[in-house]
Design a protein around this nucleic acid. Structure first.
Lengths: 249, 249
DNA sequence: TCTTGCATACTAACATGTTAGCTTGGGCCT
DNA sequence: AGGCCCAAGCTAACATGTTAGTATGCAAGA
């Protein structure tokens, strides 16, 4: 069940560093029903690579570690399977999903579809108050960039996208975009941003805001498409560098 | 909130006929795990209005009717709640979701976002074989129209959209579009098509296919947007005619 | 008449017991 | 030595028992 490190060529094509394994976050850090909290805790572990692609998910162990019975764990695992974050093999076991380039491409497609529609909508309907929020977010990005706080920058980047999605007024689009995007995100954190990429990202964000400020839906679409199109290109080499993390196609 | 002056006051604004209540379809009509089959059976009952908005979902009754225990029923109900097809009130009961105009609008937005992205993609990548399938579908529509087989026409209409979504090569977009669209669909079947609407639908389908044949993504987007934009307008009067089926806003 | 308090009868949520199917490993036969 | 078979030990899936929280109805009191 444990994935043995396959042959390492002398120098990998990409510097890939796996974050350390951490124990499950206790349930009291989350809200909602037990099942909901177990779901959140497991999801976090998978997305943060504490549970790694191919790992076996041992329910008794999880039950013991979280101090709950099998029912909420089962329900949580079922929900993770719907998102393709785990793979349930009937009567055999449950495994953390490996990456799949097909699934990553699909996630990128979905995210782009949703976010293009959102930004086109928002460019036509945005209020002054909402614009203020976006401007504030972008100023924050600038400040974090000046401080070389890349982690903070990433957070604020995500927040900007979330703002735009929420400005459509549709509650579920942000959530849907997030779940569509989840495989991309899980893979993304494995690669260090290329030099200068963060600055380009900031510039692209500026372009998006400018188009929204101009209430120009066509330009907003174009700027957003340009922005989102960047990431996938950086991701594909990962499949070559770490085939052990990927689904065999 | 203003009702348009389009109706004589004495007749109701809309002739709304609810389909008859039918018993749950037995599980052996479906495939997969028990939970999966229970889910499918309940979903069908809700979408076909056999279970009506506001109805209480009595688990013991369902268990008895389907001959299973509470576990698979619980899991099925949980999944229905994720889709907002039922509303679970903790420690109180589970109810078939009422319609919500907000949710219907959101579903239409999502579907449009996905289908516009799909058709734009497909117009650039479609193969001759796939084009043949679309042409065949459209000829079938024509034939069904000539026979006044509106039910068959609707099936083929849905199949055409599904074809286009599947031609992207992304497995989950069709499923996602379906679940996004589910509230629109549930409401749609309550209203009879306006006179001549079916013919217009066919013409719009022709325009979409023509744009795809021309491999013109912009025209394909425009034609699809025009087509999808029709339905929502026909749906809004329903909330006025049958407020009892709708969530109070 | 209207309110208040309590007993009752529901429900979802959770815990635990049971079943059936897959995988694995070891011994036996060839 | 190598392949095959069978049994043991996993697992998910399902059944059933338990707990706790909410609505409801009725009766008693204001």
């Amino acid at each position: 069940m444990q994935d043995a490190p396959r042959q390492a060529p002398e120098v990998p094509a990409l510097e890939v560093q796996l974050p350390p394994r951490r124990p499950l976050r206790p349930l009291d850090a989350f809200a909602g029903s037990l099942a909901q909290r177990v779901y959140a805790s497991l999801r976090e572990a998978i997305l943060s690579m504490s549970f790694r692609p191919g790992d076996s998910l041992r329910k008794p162990e999880i039950c013991a570690q979280l101090g709950v019975s099998r029912s909420p764990v089962s329900e949580a695992v079922t929900r993770l399977a719907v998102e393709h974050l785990v793979r349930i093999v009937p009567q055999t076991g449950t495994y953390v999903a490996r990456f799949s380039l097909a699934e990553i491409r699909e996630g990128a497609f979905l995210r782009e579809a949703l976010e293009l529609a959102a930004v086109e909508n928002v460019a036509q309907t945005i209020t002054e108050d909402e614009l203020t929020q976006l401007r504030h977010n972008l100023r924050l990005q600038q400040a974090l960039l000046d401080d070389d706080d890349f982690d903070g920058f990433y957070q604020t980047d995500a927040a900007m996208h979330e703002l735009i999605l929420s400005f459509t007024g549709y509650r579920r689009v942000a959530a849907l975009a997030e779940t569509s995007w989840v495989h991309v995100n899980r893979a993304r954190q494995l690669i260090l941003p290329a030099p200068g990429r963060v600055q380009s990202t900031y510039a692209e964000h500026q372009a998006i805001l400018a188009a929204i400020e101009a209430r120009d839906p066509v330009a907003a679409r174009a700027a957003t498409r340009l922005h989102l199109g960047q990431l996938i290109g950086f991701l594909e080499p990962l499949a070559l560098a770490r085939p052990d993390l990927f689904e065999p196609d």
